[in-house]
């Protein structure tokens, strides 16, 4: 990389430099990094009936400093099968949704990248527009379509294809459908960005050398779009694991997802230490996907 012209100036001439670094660094340290430390701290304290509802870790009395770290919250998570089921359920549903998003989104992104240049911006705006409206309302839209007296069931009943409504609302199917619907634009965007940059001459070379179209796709296009696939998949998978709104609105009693469990521990049971421990374990599960995304993102930023 070329050295920035700012760097060539003598230090005295750039008094603003420190500030430009300090302001975002301070803001993010205070409002992003520090809160994680606090979550970790509270996950190691005991629940108490007080305001706020957790006990102190550090206690100074009789000239001794007592540090009480309690791993009870973490142990508690392993004893109750609800939590393990919730983690497993979240990962499973998020994984299935991500695969479906990829299967639907890849051909769409491919068609967009191959479309005539004057169409590409319009198509990109069309794909992204739903994500700018309202997440909540787009999930809500499915409630009227999937419910027992909803559009699909009414239609099928009217056609005489079924005698009694099929239960679609409050099932895992509805949750996966909701996640795919809500997150599809975020899968398509990085895939499109990647495929649009793909060097057309490579594909021509492959076809000149007699490679069949399908063969070229698996040997050339797919490996070259790996970065886009990873970015898109992580943009769907990571938030889907912690999803709260979709299982709450479309899911049923059988849908146990960790975002919903955390929400209920926090707001209904007011057990802040257990909610914090749940968040820390979720973060531990997601650390590899997050690291993958960051590696891709920083490579993307360097180009």
């Amino acid at each position: 990389m070329k050295p920035s012209p700012l760097a060539r100036l003598p230090r005295a001439l750039r008094p603003g430099r420190g500030w430009v670094i300090a302001v975002p660094l301070l803001w993010l340290t205070l409002f992003f990094l520090l809160p994680f430390g606090i979550v970790l701290k509270i996950s190691l304290s005991e629940a108490a009936i007080s305001v706020p509802p957790y006990g102190a870790i550090l206690d100074y009395s009789a000239e001794t400093l007592n540090i009480a770290l309690s791993f009870g919250n973490y142990l508690f998570l392993t004893t109750d099968t609800l939590y393990i089921a919730a983690y497993w359920g979240s990962v499973k549903i998020a994984f299935l949704s991500t695969v479906l998003c990829l299967l639907i989104g890849y051909p769409m992104a491919y068609a967009m990248a191959r479309a005539p240049a004057r169409w590409q911006l319009v198509l990109l705006l069309l794909v992204m527009l739903p994500s700018w409206t309202s997440f909540l309302i787009r999930v809500y839209a499915w409630m009227g379509i999937l419910s027992n007296n909803g559009l699909i069931n009414n239609g099928l009943l009217w056609l005489g294809l079924i005698d009694s409504p099929i239960r679609m609302m409050n099932t895992n199917f509805a949750v996966i459908l909701g996640i795919v619907y809500a997150y599809l634009p975020f899968m398509i965007l990085p895939l499109y960005a990647n495929l649009a940059r793909l060097d057309g001459s490579l594909l021509e070379a492959a076809s000149d050398l007699g490679s069949r179209k399908i063969n070229t796709f698996f040997k050339v296009t797919l490996p070259l779009s790996k970065g886009g696939i990873i970015a898109g998949s992580m943009l769907v998978f990571i938030p889907a694991v912690g999803e709260y709104v979709i299982p709450e609105l479309l899911g049923g009693p059988n849908t146990v997802m960790i975002g919903k469990v955390l929400w209920e521990e926090f707001f209904h049971n007011r057990d802040w230490p257990v909610a914090s421990a749940l968040a820390m374990v979720m973060l531990a599960i997601l650390i590899i996907p997050i690291a993958l995304f960051h590696r891709y993102q920083s490579r993307e930023l360097k180009e």
């Binding site: 992003f32 979550v39 709260y244 975002g259 929400w263 997601l286 996907p289 997050i290 995304f293």
Partner: peptide, 13 residues
């Protein structure tokens, strides 16, 4: 990394 981290952080966390 702190700048881009919130992009993929689950909202509940």
């Amino acid at each position: 990394s702190m700048v881009t981290a919130p992009l993929v952080m689950p909202e509940v966390i």
